[in-house]
Simulated assay, not measured.
Amino acid sequence: MKKILFIGAGSMAEALIQGWIKQEVFKPQEIYITNRSDNERLQCLHDTYGVSILQNDATFAQLDAIILAMKPKDAVTAMQLVCTKLADHTAVLSILAGIPIDTITENLGDRPVARVMPNTSATIGMSASAIAFNNVVSVEQRNTFLQLLEAVGSVIEVQEDQLHAVTALSGSGPAYIYYLMEAFEKVGTEVGLDKDTVRLLMTQTLAGTAEMLKQSPEEPNELRKKVTSPGGTTEAGIKALEHHHFNDAIKACIKDAEARSRELAKS
């Protein structure tokens, strides 16, 4: 793919733009951007990454793919505005939460469509992405889309319906981890450490724990038990989590996010 267009210019679009340019998947001038009305945002991305702001409709005929990155509530309107401008060969990569492939083809025609749920860690080449394809996507296009996502992290292929769960877990996952870090920093300062010290300790702890899960053949509960000595400090902390229904909170978090994704699909 030599020319692509982002329709929408939010944080996820920026994460992919930054990641792809950093990994030299695209040159800045091969990436076009547009959105509904926020010209200041477009100019900011242009100044920061050197990407091109879409100036006229003639560019549409040259595009290999468009990336749908607008807010889900604006998706149908945006697709209706561009549907007659796209070339027959132009493929679609959607990063929209909840918007099904059927809705995309209803508005953009029977063309190759891939739905992907990445996350903002694509910025540093560490996204966890899942992707689903319609039956119009060729083997070559499928491989190209997979390579695009592999350039900014890891990617797995799933059934489209599973993307609701992916959205709730890894798509929204960075926000949950940042929220957890906020809590660590707050309580860390309450028990006598400065914020920078807490940040250093906990970011390394999170990174080390993630690497242990990747490298160790043991299940998480076995690794947890190895850290939890009977009558010790870790056991006291785990008991507090159980007392405050930590598992129930996580369950509610994921199920509510997954349900919201399905609501977006229906609407």
Rank of each mutant, 00 (worst) to 15 (best):
G50W: 08
I104C: 08
I95N: 01
S138F: 09
E235I: 14
A130G: 07
I31A: 08
P28W: 04
G192S: 10
M12C: 02
T144N: 02
A168L: 10
L223D: 07
E218N: 12
H245V: 09
K73H: 15
V191P: 10
P217L: 08
H243C: 09
E30P: 09
V139Q: 07
N135H: 14
Q43A: 10
Q23I: 00
Q23M: 02
S216K: 06
E106L: 11
I66V: 13
W20G: 01
S11N: 14
L68C: 12
A132N: 10
Q18N: 05
W20E: 02
Y32W: 15
S127T: 12
K2A: 02
K239P: 04
A15R: 01
E30D: 15
E218P: 01
A168E: 11
K71R: 12
I33N: 09
L169W: 07
K195N: 15
L206P: 04
F6E: 12
F246Y: 13
M212P: 02
N134I: 13
G231C: 10
A69T: 01
S11E: 09
I131W: 05
E14D: 07
V227G: 05
T77D: 10
A78P: 04
V187G: 05
S138H: 04
D88I: 13
A249T: 12
N56L: 07
S52A: 04
N107W: 03
P112H: 02
A165Q: 13
L223V: 02
S138T: 15
C253L: 10
F145D: 04
D64V: 10
L63G: 10
V198D: 12
E190T: 12
P174F: 07
N221F: 04
T197W: 10
L169E: 13
S154T: 14
Q55W: 00
A58H: 03
D196A: 14
G192E: 08
W20L: 00
K251H: 09
T59S: 08
L86I: 09
L96G: 01
Q23D: 02
S170R: 02
K186M: 13
C44D: 08
T123K: 13
Y32M: 06
L86Q: 07
G173M: 05
H89M: 12
A252C: 06
I131G: 01
I17S: 00
S37K: 12
L149Y: 08
E30A: 10
H89K: 14
S154M: 08
G173V: 02
E185W: 00
F60C: 04
T123I: 11
T90M: 10
L68W: 02
E218S: 13
K251E: 06
A13D: 04
K239Y: 11
I95D: 01
N135M: 11
Q18A: 10
L86Y: 02
L200Q: 15
D74R: 04
P220M: 05
